[in-house]
């Protein structure tokens, strides 16, 4: 079945210049393996399309069940240059969690 990441993870996002960072965190320890397998750079690239103009970096943090993503050139110039309403990328956390992933039909979800 297909489910949005929102069912498996929480997240927080912020900015560093024109780069948005999104840290996605497994809601249960067993979900981390699913995130690790399914949420690839290619998948994130396809999800955001033109919204992210630069490269995407991905860093695993198994110690806290999280993956940190850096979305380069995603904030319209960033900082004080940007014309975007969400200048600091604060809402990238939940746009990220809209991503749909394929999981086992028997997966237990609260």
């Amino acid at each position: 079945m297909k489910i949005p990441l929102l069912k498996l993870a929480h997240a927080r996002s912020g900015d560093k210049g024109d780069t948005a960072n999104v840290g996605i965190i497994a809601l249960k320890p067993e979900y981390y393996e699913i995130l690790k397998e399914k949420v690839t750079v290619e998948k994130v690239k396809a999800h955001y399309g033109d919204m992210v103009k630069g490269k995407i970096e991905r860093f695993e943090m198994p110690n806290i069940g999280a993956i940190n993503f850096l979305l380069h050139n995603a904030l319209g110039g960033g900082g004080t240059l940007t014309l975007k309403h969400d200048a600091q990328g604060k809402t990238y956390s939940t746009s990220f969690l809209r991503m749909e992933i394929e999981v086992d039909d028997n997966l237990q979800i609260d």
């Binding site: 997240a11 912020g14 960072n21 840290g23 965190i25 970096e57 860093f59 940190n68």
Partner: peptide, 16 residues
């Protein structure tokens, strides 16, 4: 743990 984790990843680059 969840509130702390969210802050840990905030404005984070390469975590290592």
């Amino acid at each position: 743990e969840r509130t702390v984790k969210e802050q840990l990843v905030y404005e984070l680059g390469n975590p290592a």
